[in-house]
Design a protein around this nucleic acid. Structure first.
Lengths: 283, 283
DNA sequence: GGCAACGATACCTTCCAGGTATCGTTGCGG
DNA sequence: CCGCAACGATACCTGGAAGGTATCGTTGCC
């Protein structure tokens, strides 16, 4: 199977319309029809049920859609990583590490310092990204290694090592009545009048329905808390980043958050292995 | 990047010889040279250093070799799973489950029975394979789900759920002096005169050097133990499969073995999800 | 029943993958 | 030091496949 055929099929399967898919691909509709027919012939499988009015996926077609997307991602990742390896002037490609902007700066700084001191260390670029974006970057080959936070981020398809586990705190406006408490429970903070928990976007970019403001990153979130429009439950380590107009109170029964370092499981990069070993030794 | 180019590159990178690679690919050498040049031009990266006597990989080339292999595996897996989905007569593709021949029959039987009783269950084919073969089958799309045994098998790149944890026993000929003990320690059984631990093949098919017979599967192993040529450390559950001429004694300080159910992390198959849910509920 | 939307088909053109022949370089044995 | 053999690169040709345009057949809809 050629990637061209796969890209054509994915386009049609997503649009469920040959004309629009052809337009998206920048080719005419007839060659697209033929390419899909040929793919079906070679696979010995009907991928699409088509009438002159509608196109629908067969069972085999929907399998090929998910599997094909994964395969195309892998091909694109291969291409990107190769390009990056070639671009690096030293011949020793640098590493790209993806992490949430809200992650522990202390852990990250310690890790980068310790790794830089290793013999054979290469330059590390850090990408600060929004929630759950690291997985995509790793899959797409835009990053070599990432810091993820379970249970929020999915570690599906990666190798991981646990680095640290911490409890969570609720972040409140400094003057809030609960801010003086030594600790609280989840029940104390769900449904606080005027301070709803915010809504994070789903992987598809849409927001779940419900009360609470929509946020895209941690800075927005803290801004909203400072404005008295929301409260937030975050890992303890965020305390180091809080301004004095915010207060943090431990939430005893919130789920523990584990920071893990993750990398594509087929990675054979010496640099990734060194960085991971350094990270483990720090703990 | 087309898969054809990728296959060509992988062939050359593995052979480090254009002539042999062309032969392996079933094409002539000049088109192969041209294809690689074109790939290098498009990537903007030198992949191979060539003199008229030797071919070596550049840094970028070795990145593309590992990443490209992974990508080709993904493409092949997509093709195979699609074919399988189409072949199944019901339109509801059956599942293929890969497990070691030596795995617990009890767990497997319970799982298959419980899943078959689920509404919407599909037929499950079971592949019994040798040690560490399940990972390959899953990656190649020949299996949809597998039972793996940590720490022996690598779960890299898969989603997993733990099913059970058990201790290990040493399997001995029935008449052996240690066979009457209630339990032993690892120190008791390393270097037993005449009963060495066997050697398993590495992933590349070769055997590590050392004493002890070479074995390929569990049946061979038990045969050798019965013949008094080896002893073996195995998960407890293998006791159910032991003939009376063999004895099993718990090894107190052997590492615990965890059976996990594993599936490709991008799997969106309803059947896989059902089977996994059933497996978790059994525990 | 006419029409419009849509995928399939027919047919042509262009381009590129692949083949054969040959060249230029290089290491090696005499 | 020279001839030779091995090897990748180049030159040139050919067939097939990818892509384009025009058009057909079917189908739902007003």
């Amino acid at each position: 199977m050629e990637t061209r055929e796969l890209r054509y099929f994915v386009a049609v399967a997503e649009e469920l319309h040959f004309g629009r898919a052809a337009q998206r691909l920048g080719i005419a509709q007839p060659p697209l029809s033929r390419a899909i027919q040929q793919l079906e012939r070679r696979l010995g499988a009907a991928l699409l049920d088509r009438t002159s009015r509608t196109v629908t996926l067969t069972e085999a077609g929907s399998v090929l859609l998910t599997e094909g997307r994964a395969a195309l991602d892998a091909v694109d990742a291969a291409e990107r990583r190769t390009r990056r390896a070639a671009l690096s002037p030293t011949g020793r490609p640098g590493l790209v590490l993806a992490t949430k902007a809200s992650a522990s700066r202390e852990l990250l700084a310690k890790l980068l310092d310790a790794y830089a001191a290793e013999p054979g260390a290469v330059p590390v670029d850090v990408i600060l990204c929004g929630p759950a974006e690291q997985e995509r970057l790793l899959h797409e080959g835009r990053a070599d290694v990432a810091l993820l936070h379970r249970p929020f981020d999915s570690t599906a398809g990666f190798d991981t090592e646990e680095l640290s586990t911490e409890g969570q705190v609720v972040v409140l406006p400094a003057g809030h009545p609960l801010a003086v408490r030594a600790h609280v429970h989840m029940a104390d903070i769900t449904g606080l009048p005027g301070l709803p928990l915010p809504r994070w976007p789903s992987p598809d970019g849409t927001y779940p329905p419900g009360p609470g403001p929509q946020v895209r990153d941690h800075a927005q979130l803290l801004q909203l808390v400072a404005l008295g429009r929301a409260c937030a439950v975050s890992p303890e380590s965020c305390r180091a980043q809080l301004h004095s107009d915010l207060a943090a109170v431990p939430v005893l029964d919130a789920p523990k958050v584990t920071t893990v370092i993750a990398w594509p499981s087929h990675s054979r990069s010496r640099a990734v292995a060194d960085l991971v070993r350094t990270a483990i030794r720090l703990q």
